[in-house]
């Protein structure tokens, strides 16, 4: 499944800045290396506080690294200097954050169109694409609602398709379904897999939920507690399309779940 590495993370490290007169601060992330292939759905799982968000922030170029490099399509991203950061790497890396970060003064539709608008790509074709995505995640009829009028799940959907709409080659997702109830969560996982099946984007999906990591990914990386290092790597060969709600009954699921849980201890 994995083709050419699209994204290469090499020896990436992060520590808080030194404070005057104190011992050096601990590493949040230390010498982390992995690659993500084109069209791959990579899940990263780690205990809370293991620097997962920091990792994604660095890849998304909204936070600088203390060491190491990030390459996208073999080009080195300017990641060391906080001033040279290029958030989103010129719209090539999308980022679905834990909070939906919808603009509260824009309606659902206008939130979804926001990236197209600022990129100057708003036309009939992209507009139709946005409408299609809105229908695909069941937000039809809510286009003119403001974020505060939507439920948590709906806001999540809107924030998801706001990233999908401009088609970045890589999408980072930071526990996007973390705060939702189990039912909504399963529904959104299904939606995500369905959408992913349409375009087969490259996705880096961070979670602390083992079942979610297995259910969604082609491959999963297990991180240790801070400083984050890779504790294990697993290919997930459960065939697609997958049945999210019934995934626990698949023969591969149980042993994998146990192994990952052991690595997380």
């Amino acid at each position: 499944m994995a083709g050419q590495p699209l994204l290469e993370i090499h020896d990436l490290s992060k520590r808080f800045a030194q404070r005057a007169g104190r011992e050096p601060p601990p590493w949040v992330i230390q010498d982390l290396s992995f690659t993500v292939g084109e069209g791959e759905f990579l899940t990263i799982i780690g205990p809370s506080g293991s620097g997962k968000t920091t990792l994604l922030n660095m890849i998304a170029q909204i936070d600088s690294a203390s060491g190491g490099s990030v390459r996208f399509q073999s080009q080195i991203a300017p990641i060391a200097d906080p001033k040279a950061l290029n958030p989103g790497l010129s719209c090539q890396i999308g980022y679905v954050t834990q909070e939906d970060n919808l603009l509260p003064w824009r309606t659902t539709l206008r939130n979804v169109l926001f990236p197209l608008e600022v990129q100057g790509r708003l036309n009939d074709e992209t507009r139709a694409h946005a409408q299609m995505l809105i229908r695909a995640v069941g937000l039809a009829g809510f286009e003119d609602h403001y974020p505060h009028e939507l439920s948590g799940g709906m806001r999540k959907r809107a924030s998801l398709i706001r990233t999908l709409v401009y088609d970045p080659p890589v999408i980072l997702m930071d526990e996007p379904f973390g705060a939702l109830d189990a039912q909504t969560r399963a529904q959104l996982q299904e939606d995500l897999l369905r959408l992913w099946d349409l375009g087969r984007k490259t996705i880096v999906f961070v979670t602390h939920d083992i079942a979610e990591a297995i259910a969604l990914g082609d491959r999963t990386l297990v991180l240790t507690r801070a400083p984050a290092r890779i504790a294990g790597e697993h290919k997930i060969t459960i065939p697609r399309p997958r049945d999210i709600r019934g995934i626990m009954t698949h023969s591969e699921f149980g042993p994998l779940y146990q192994r990952i849980r052991a690595e997380l201890q």
């Binding site: 998304a60 909204i62 958030p87 989103g88 010129s90 719209c91 890396i93 999308g94 980022y95 954050t97 970060n101 926001f114 990236p115 600022v118 990129q119 706001r162 990233t163 401009y166």
Partner: peptide, 8 residues
């Protein structure tokens, strides 16, 4: 940050 990432 969100706006920066989507290219604003």
């Amino acid at each position: 940050n969100m706006a920066r990432i989507v290219g604003a």
